[in-house]
Nucleic acid binder design. Structure first.
Lengths: 247, 247
DNA sequence: CCCATTTTTTGATATAGATCAATTTCTAGA
DNA sequence: TCTAGAAATTGATCTATATCAAAAAATGGG
């Protein structure tokens, strides 16, 4: 099925026109006039809450750019132990994990929209738009750096430090500078359950809950209905996340 | 300083002729006749035991291909807590971690030899040898998959499972197939200290030592002088590493 | 709006692994 | 080969977090 130039232009306007991923994903190295090539090589995917769009162990045929919503990425052990290896946000490039088969499962938290690129399509696009090379490399490198920080978190940080790190990480897409300076309260909406947070931080749900309560009693955060958290002292939390004890 | 064609050819013979990394590193997508370009863009580095060749936080100017020996890669917290994020082996591509500054320190375990490529050199080489793109991407992807496995290890595995995973991982470069089948004993020489193993596995040195002793008493391994370990039941250890309990 | 179900919080207790403290075993230099 | 210092092992005890068990709060369908 070949799209006509006309309908392709319409597709570009529809898909990329107001895409929140346009400026933060790998697409940001593509000029507006070249978007049709991207749209022609990819397809839009909508995934409902709780559904998986990448399956651990399945043959890896596609890459994805997340353009709406959030997703959790995890692997399982045979007995059901679960480790969440990351939360994906708008702009993230997924599926890079392996050449043969996916190393993790990706499940939508709320409704998720994606652009799916078959591996062959990425190959063609990279050939046509050389700047994509560097951009993909950059994506992989930044993911690698995040992974190293997570290893430190899981290997060496206490429960308090882990939760503080998580809150600061969730906050940083919003306002990175607010954490350094002693800026005011910062409200986050957490789309993931306590179980998800526990499986991300290598803790149990009870420890996560208790630590949230402790932070609340200490005046570090305030909680509204389990999914809305306000960081009352972002600076203190940021220091705690890094293992720094204030006098 | 421009090398003459003559001395460049000599340098290629000397550097690449018997390089153990030739067939396993990113160099394996470069034809023999193109090696001079690689040699011209890189420099050989020799690092003595215990010395660092990448410093966490330092500006990242170079990439490295490890061509001899082994290295430990780690990050530190302000109070000295340490997490080893990986052990590098012959063929590994290092420095990919970040665009601005290195995210970890790399320290030689024993003498290490490297080929150092400035970022700009890699850019030129990638342009000249397009196959390098895919090879670099592959390197990043495989590292990412390893990282995900390490997250599971640190977040969800027991001390026994962690040490079993470590031993199996150390063994796999040697003989991957010997682990699946019920093949015979497999001797490893571990160039890293118990402290290094502990900081890699998110445990204390005492727990690592105790777990080694337990494995020995259970007939899973035999130990000769702390750095030489023989896996007596690689299959059992492999199952334990994956969280599988045999009847 | 209400009730059944699920999720979260809180409490009591258990335990894997950490910490503190000796020994023992290696290793490198004389 | 011997020996001092370092590294590893082993033992005793502690503790942060897990586990088990309710209670409380949130959520969603009718």
């Amino acid at each position: 099925m070949v799209e006509t130039g006309r309908s392709l232009m319409e597709a570009v306007r529809e898909r990329c026109g107001r895409c929140p991923g346009r400026s933060v994903s790998i697409c940001n190295v593509i000029e507006d006039q070249d978007l049709p090539a991207l749209v022609a090589e990819s397809s839009r995917v909508v995934v409902q809450a709780g559904r998986c769009f990448i399956q651990e162990g399945a043959p890896a045929h596609d890459f994805y750019v997340l353009t709406g919503g959030r997703a959790k990425l995890f692997s399982l052990m045979p007995d059901g132990r679960r480790q969440i290896v990351g939360f994906a946000e708008v702009g993230d490039f997924l599926g890079l994990a392996s050449s043969e088969s996916y190393a993790f499962t990706a499940e939508a938290l709320g409704e998720v929209t994606l652009c799916r690129f078959p591996h062959s399509a990425i190959d063609r696009l990279v050939e046509r738009f050389p700047r994509l090379h560097g951009r993909l490399q950059q994506e992989a490198s930044s993911e690698l750096v995040k992974m190293q920080a997570r290893l430190m978190l899981l290997g060496r940080k206490t429960a308090r430090e882990r939760l503080a790190s998580f809150l600061v990480e969730q906050a940083s897409p919003c306002c990175a500078h607010a954490l350094k300076d002693e800026h005011g309260p910062l409200t986050l909406s957490l789309p993931m359950s306590r179980t998800d947070i526990a499986d991300y931080l290598g803790l149990t749900i009870e420890t996560v809950s208790r630590t949230f309560s402790l932070f609340r009693k200490e005046g570090l955060i305030s909680i509204r209905g389990a999914s809305s958290v306000t960081l009352l002292s972002p600076g203190l939390l940021s220091d705690m996340a890094g293992g720094i004890k204030r006098s």
